[in-house]
Design a binder for these strands. Structure first.
Length: 486
RNA sequence: CGGGCUGUGGCGCAGUCUGGUAGCGCGCUUCGUUCGGGACGAAGAGGCCGGAGGUUCAAAUCCUCUCAGCCCGACCA
């Protein structure tokens, strides 16, 4: 017992990253696979993260003039079929509802769909709602005075994925989908860029996530979009993950659904529509960007619980220690910090490891010493035991928010440094090949967009399992990022 | 949809070749000693072995059919 500190998660990231990821999901009690193929059950601690994300972002959308609404989960197949590229993109992953009632089997065993209850027109379970919202918008928009129309719904969608991975790619996943309509292209494009900016701000300021904003290449565009914008993040294994997208749909959906308005001069014109989203996938991204070999490391501003107060009981003075713990938690709450005393009937070390695996940003340990001296001992999750410090009660309470802010800033900086360190420059397709051959495909390679025109480009990227992530804004669209991706 | 594999207490597995009526680790319960970077002892609870049919005195084990899931490929937030 000494050499190498035992890690809470086996295997480590280095040993087997995908397996490590699964183990963190389990150890942090975030979610589990459900009896339904490819669909996850999100457990309370995991769902609390999502609720916090919604809680922060939803008001931002409302400030921007977006109104929430709710559209059906089932979409007539004919709706989906209307936009050619869109159907092609989603057809294969649609679940279809063909019947509407069940009855007992004649032999008394189990249920079967009633033979007479086949639907005349089947429905698909929504894989995304452009079509049914487009249909509604066509009715709701009459005049230029109705524009822009900004709608959003928080919901789940279903895509019958071949290779599900919890949070990252599940059959059903939760998201919000914004669907806006504008009078002209300028409005739609501005919308895409504005919302992308909101995502970026949200990721940086709340998730401590640094990503690259950019434009998708044609091959990676949303089916039915003229332009897709995204934020691309780098996971700790060097793979890319698309964290969110905004789509400029041009007049493609307006044409097929008849989303038209009468302009000021009396003429009729098509709307320019957009759609955009981020999903519960971000929870998976948080794990893969911030997690370590002891489990989850939660960004403080989105953490379901920011501070855990851990009583260290020895059998005497227990009541007094508990009272002191409660006082600390109350003090923190007074500062707007979510804190809870871990009163569970468990051994202290087990509680401590539970807090570590769940990634609670700040852990407070209170035993007889602290109580007698009126001090507080605390440890930062992102740094670990080296950060253990003891302060007076007042000093700690007053400074706790500052500590959480420092945790956030450090996590963001660390994450950004990781991406920068693992982003490599190249000039030609040959550079791309050399890099991913040698380094087994870690990180991003940035090359001039001209490389996309190389006649061998498609064959090479396919061969090496590479994708074009985006053409970053920061390079003015002159470069493209190449990487393996989730 | 092609190729490979697995179904045995909550979880992870052994037992299957060579049929004899189910076992291990973790977890869980109780008691005691413990509790500041993962404790130990003792005593317990919990499974008709994915399902259906067959062979047999006897099936987790052999045969037939069936269902479900996993991994690799094509597809994807």
């Amino acid at each position: 017992m000494s050499k190498k500190a035992k890690t809470a998660i086996t295997p480590t990231r280095e040993e087997n990253f995908p397996e490590w990821y699964q183990q963190v999901v389990k150890a942090a009690d975030l979610a589990e696979n459900s009896p339904v193929r490819g669909c996850m059950t999100v457990k309370p601690y995991g769902w609390a993260i999502w609720e916090n994300m919604v809680g922060v972002f939803d008001p931002w959308l409302k400030d921007y003039g977006v109104q929430n609404a709710s559209f059906p989960m089932l979409i007539p197949v004919s709706f989906l079929s209307k936009e050619a590229e869109h159907v092609e993109g989603f057809a294969k992953e649609c679940a279809v509802v063909t019947h509407h009632r069940l009855e007992a089997n004649p032999d008394g065993n189990g249920l079967r769909p009633a033979p007479a209850a086949e639907l005349e027109e089947p429905y698909v379970v929504r894989p995304t709602s452009e079509t049914i919202i487009g249909d509604a918008m066509a009715r709701w928009i009459q005049s230029y005075r109705d524009l822009p129309m900004k709608l959003n719904q928080w919901c789940s969608v279903l895509r019958w994925e071949m290779r599900p991975r919890i949070f990252l790619r599940t059959g059903e996943f939760f998201w919000h989908e914004g669907h806006n309509a504008f009078a002209d292209h300028e409005g739609a494009k501005g919308d895409c860029l504005h919302v992308l900016g909101l995502y970026d701000k949200f990721f940086r300021e709340y998730l401590a996530v640094d990503g690259v904003m950019g434009i998708k290449t044609e091959a990676e565009r949303f089916p039915g979009a003229n332009e897709t914008y995204s934020i691309e993040c780098m996971m700790q294994d060097g793979k890319a993950l698309q964290a969110c997208t905004t789509h400029d749909l041009g007049t493609n959906f307006a044409k097929t659904f008849g989303i038209k308005y009468q302009s000021r001069d009396g003429g009729e014109a098509l709307c320019h529509t957009t759609s955009w989203a981020f999903t519960t996938r971000m929870i998976g991204a948080l794990i893969m960007m911030h997690g370590d070999d002891d489990g989850m490391v939660m960004p403080p501003r989105i953490a379901p619980q920011q501070v855990v107060v851990l009583p260290v009981l020895k059998g005497d003075n227990d009541a007094a220690i508990m009272a002191y713990c409660a006082k600390i938690a109350e003090g923190l709450k007074g500062q707007g910090i979510s804190a809870k005393v871990d009163e569970r009937d468990m051994r202290t070390p087990d509680k401590m490891w539970d807090a570590i695996k769940k990634g609670i940003p700040l852990r407070v340990e209170v035993g007889g010493r602290e109580m007698e001296e009126g001090v507080v001992t605390h440890v930062r999750r992102d740094i670990g035991r080296e950060s253990k410090a003891t302060q007076s009660f007042d000093e700690f309470i007053a400074g706790a928010q500052g500590v959480l802010d420092a945790v956030h800033d450090d996590m963001l900086a660390k994450q950004r440094a990781f991406r920068e360190k693992n982003t490599h420059e190249g000039q030609t397709l040959g550079d791309v090949i050399a890099h991913f051959d040698k380094n087994k495909g870690t990180g991003f390679v940035r090359v001039p967009v001209e490389v996309l025109g190389d006649s061998a480009f498609l064959a090479v990227t396919k061969d090496l399992s590479l994708t074009t992530r985006c053409m970053p804004f920061e390079d003015g669209g002159k470069t493209v990022l190449i990487a393996k991706a989730y």
